[in-house]
C-alpha cells in the first residue's frame, strides 16, 4: 500500500463575523487509496486526540452526488482532478512532500459559517424564484402521452445533472451563479413540460440571482473548468436567449 506525507495549510475561521487565518498541519503515512475527505478525517481524529478542535467541513453522500462537500485546493475548486467533487478526489493524485492549501468556497453570496463550511442557501432562493414546473400533485397525464426524443431527454439530463455544490461560483472572478442557474433553466426549457412558464422563469431566476449578490458573467469560463458534473457553458448561452426572449415578448 502506497503512503505519502503531506503539509496542509487550512483556513480556520470561527464564524462569519470573526477573522480567519491559515493553520499549518503535517500528516504522515496517508494511504493513497484514501479519498480527500478520509484524509481530512484522519487529520480531525489526530486533532481530537491532541485536544484541538477539528476542521469543520461539509459532506454527506461521499460519492459525488449530494453537492454538500467542496473546498478550494491549491486554488482550484474541488482540487486538481477533472470532473470530480472533493469527496471523489483521491490521495493518489498527490505526491509525498506536497503542501496543500485548503480554503472554503468564497463568494459574497456564500457567507462562511465555520472553517470550510459555507452557507449556499442563496441557491435555494434562486430555485424558489422559478426553477420548477408549476403543477400540483395529481391530475397529471400519462407519462408516455407526450413523446420526448431521446436526444432531448439526454440534453436535458446533461443540464439536470448539476449538484448545486457552488464550485462554479467559487471559481468565477465575478462570483457569478450563471452556470448553476442556466443548468436549471436549460433542463426545463428543453422539455415540453417547461414551456408554459419559460419566459417568466428566466426573468424571475435571473432577478433573484442579482438580488443575492452574485456577479455578472463575463465569459471567463472558469466555472465550466471546475464543474464536477461537466455542465457546459452552452447552458449560459441558452439562459441568455431565454432571458432576452422574455424581455422581447414583454413578460
Amino acid at each position: 500500500m502506497n503512503t505519502i506525507d503531506l503539509t496542509l495549510k487550512i483556513w480556520r475561521q470561527k464564524d462569519n463575523d470573526s477573522l480567519g487565518n491559515f493553520e499549518t498541519y503535517t500528516l504522515r503515512d496517508i494511504t493513497t487509496d484514501m479519498s480527500f475527505l478520509e484524509m481530512l478525517d484522519v487529520l480531525n481524529e489526530n486533532l481530537t486526540k491532541e485536544g484541538k478542535e477539528p476542521v469543520a467541513f461539509d459532506h454527506d453522500c461521499r460519492e459525488g452526488i449530494c453537492g454538500m462537500c467542496g473546498a478550494v485546493v491549491d486554488g482550484v475548486a474541488h482540487g486538481p482532478d477533472k470532473e470530480v467533487t472533493l469527496c471523489q478526489l483521491h490521495m493518489r493524485t498527490f505526491n509525498t512532500g506536497d503542501t496543500l492549501v485548503i480554503e472554503p468556497f468564497r463568494s459574497r453570496a456564500f457567507p462562511i459559517r465555520k472553517d470550510l463550511v459555507v452557507d449556499r442557501s442563496a441557491f435555494d432562493r434562486v430555485i424558489q424564484a422559478g426553477g420548477y414546473v408549476s403543477i400540483n400533485t395529481g391530475g397529471t397525464i400519462d407519462g408516455n402521452a407526450i413523446p420526448i426524443s431521446s436526444e432531448t431527454a439526454e440534453l436535458s439530463m446533461d443540464a439536470a445533472a448539476c449538484i448545486g455544490c457552488g464550485a462554479c461560483v467559487a471559481s468565477c472572478p465575478n462570483g457569478a451563479a450563471m452556470l448553476f442557474t442556466s443548468a436549471k433553466i436549460s433542463q426545463l426549457a428543453l422539455l415540453p413540460q417547461g414551456q408554459p412558464e419559460r419566459k417568466k422563469r428566466a426573468q424571475a431566476m435571473v432577478q433573484q440571482m442579482d438580488a443575492e449578490g452574485f456577479g455578472h458573467c463575463t465569459n471567463e469560463k472558469e466555472c465550466e473548468m471546475v464543474c464536477p458534473k461537466g455542465i457546459s457553458i452552452r447552458n449560459i448561452a441558452r439562459l441568455n436567449r431565454e432571458y432576452m426572449k422574455g424581455i422581447l415578448m414583454g413578460e
Partner: peptide, 15 residues
C-alpha cells in the same frame, strides 16, 4: 411516474 414526468424529470427515453 406521471407526476415526475410532469415536473420535468428527464427520465431515459427510447429513440
Amino acid at each position: 411516474i406521471d407526476q415526475c414526468v410532469a415536473q420535468g424529470v428527464p427520465f431515459a427515453r427510447e429513440y
